[in-house]
């Protein structure tokens, strides 16, 4: 892909996934891979980092006779996520203002895309 995914973007996407519902490693990796081309091995460090900075906490739940580790967004993580979201909207708007500037016919398209963005920001 032409546009590299930054660490901050990975963090915010993982936070967003977990914030909608407590979930486990495999599901997080699968959700991420739907949107961006990241290796499954990239997400372990991201989750560790978010735990270390107390954005995420974990608990174990039994599933089919084994433990499954669930991730939960802390209040600190939720605050950070909302920061990330407003930063992203700002970033996206600025990039679009240049990248999409001569696409006069596409203005409605941009509007549609903006509406798809998370509304909580």
């Amino acid at each position: 892909m032409s546009f590299p995914i930054s660490a901050g973007l990975l963090d915010s996407m993982v936070l967003a996934i977990v914030s909608s519902e407590d979930t486990y490693g495999y599901e997080i990796t699968q959700t991420m891979r739907k949107a961006v081309d990241v290796s499954e091995s990239t997400l372990y460090p991201v989750l560790k980092r978010l735990q270390k900075s107390q954005m995420l906490e974990t608990y174990d739940k039994e599933y089919m006779g084994r433990n499954r580790r669930y991730y939960h967004v802390t209040s600190k993580g939720a605050a950070q996520l909302s920061n990330y979201r407003s930063e992203w909207v700002e970033h996206k708007t600025k990039v679009d203002s240049i990248l999409m500037s001569d696409a006069i016919g596409n203005k409605e398209k941009i509007k549609e895309e903006e509406e798809v963005l998370p509304q909580e920001a």
Binding site: Y24, G25, T29, S39, E40, S41, R68, R69
Partner: peptide, 24 residues
């Protein structure tokens, strides 16, 4: 190890080779 073991198990027994390949 727990994290990656979990990925393997959640991906399913029949997908073990594919998971290994994805992990590199």
């Amino acid at each position: 190890l727990e994290f990656y073991e979990e990925l393997f198990l959640d991906a399913g027994y029949e997908n073990e080779e594919k998971t290994a390949q994805n992990l590199g």
